[in-house]
Design a protein around this nucleic acid. Sequence first.
DNA 1: ACCTGAACACCGTTCAAGT
DNA 2: ACCTGAACACCGTTCAAGT
Lengths: 194, 194
Amino acid sequence: MTTRHSRDDVVATALDLLDEHGLADLTMRRLAAALDVQASALYWHVPNKQSLLALVADRILERARPVEHDHDWPARLRAESGALRDALLAYRDGAEVVSSTIALGLGASAAWVRLLEATATSDATLDERELAASVLLEFIVGHVFREQQQSHADAVGAAAPERALDRDLDGGRVFGFGVDLIVDGFRARVGARA
Amino acid sequence: MTTRHSRDDVVATALDLLDEHGLADLTMRRLAAALDVQASALYWHVPNKQSLLALVADRILERARPVEHDHDWPARLRAESGALRDALLAYRDGAEVVSSTIALGLGASAAWVRLLEATATSDATLDERELAASVLLEFIVGHVFREQQQSHADAVGAAAPERALDRDLDGGRVFGFGVDLIVDGFRARVGARA
DNA sequence: ACCTGAACACCGTTCAAGT
DNA sequence: ACCTGAACACCGTTCAAGT
C-alpha cells in the first residue's frame, strides 16, 4: 500500500532508466522492477510500450530551452536547431526515442511548430516554411540519432574513425555545417524572389 | 544433406524475408526456418544478428543505380541522392537497416564516397566536400527511414496526416526540397568564394 | 483505482555433439 | 564444413483475480 503509482511516475522512471541504461535496457520488466511492481501493472497506466515511449519522447522535447525571438529569422532558425539538438542529447538515446514516435504523429509536433515559427518573418510561403521545418527536423533527429548511436558503438568498441561521418564526436561539426547549408539554401531560395 | 548453405544464401534469404515481412519479423529463428535449418546453425555463417544486418545493408546499397557524370556537380549530387533514396526504398525497412549499421562504420561508406565524388569538380575544399557528403547521407537515410516508418504506421492505421511531416507519401516533396536546400546551400558557400 | 500471478508466444545466443 | 538439440536468460502482452 506504500507504492501506488501514477502515469507520471511511470514516465518519469522510464526517463531515468533510459538515461542510465539506454533504450535497449528500457524493458517493461525492468521498468516495473524499478517501480517495485509486476510488469503487468504497467498496462494499467499505459496501453503498450510504444505509447510509453511517445510520452517519454514528449518529455525529452519539452525540455528544449526557449530561444530569443529578437534576431533575424536565419539566426533564430539556427538557435532553435541547436536547442533541439541539445534537448535530444540531454538523454541517452534521446534521438532514437523521438525518432521512433515521430512517424506516429504523436511526438515532435511541438518541435516542428517551433521550427515553423522561426521563419515567420521570412518572405517564404507557408508551404515552403512547412517543408523547411520538416527538412530541418528530420536532419536534426537523424543526425543526433547517429551521434548517439556512434558514441554507443565507440563505447562497445568498434573500428577507428576514418570518414567525416565517423569523426564527429568533436562537438558536432557536421551538425553545424548541415544546419548552415539548409538555412543558407532556404535563404537563397527566398532571397531570389525578393 | 540436401540443404547446406553458404553465407550468401543466408544473406539473400534475409533480404527476401526483410522485403516480405519487414525488419520486425526478420528474426534469427524465422530466417532459420526459411532456410530449413535450426536457429543455431546461423551462427556458423555469421557471428551475430548485427553483422548479418550489416551484410544486408551493404546488399541494399550496392543496388543503387549508377549515375551519369556528365552534368555539373549540383545536378550530379541531386542524381546521386535520388539513386540512394530509390535504393533504400527498394526494400521494406531498407533505411532502418542501413541506419542501424551506419554508426558501426560497416555499411554505407560506398554511398558516402559516391556523394563525395559528386562534388569533385566544385571549388570546395576536401573538408567541405566531406562534411557535405555526411550531411546529405544523414538527411537521405533519416528521411527515408521516416518515410518507411510512416507507411508502416499508416498501414497499421494511425491518425490522419496533418503536418507537412505527415503528408509526404505523395512522392517525396520533402525529400526533393531538402536535397535542393542542401545543394543550394553548398553552392552558395562555394560560390561566395569564386 | 491500482496491482498480482500465472501464463502465452516469442526472442538472441551458446555449446556440446553429430555427420 | 555445416548442422542439430537442448538449454539459458530473457522479451511484450493478456487476463482473471485480488484489495
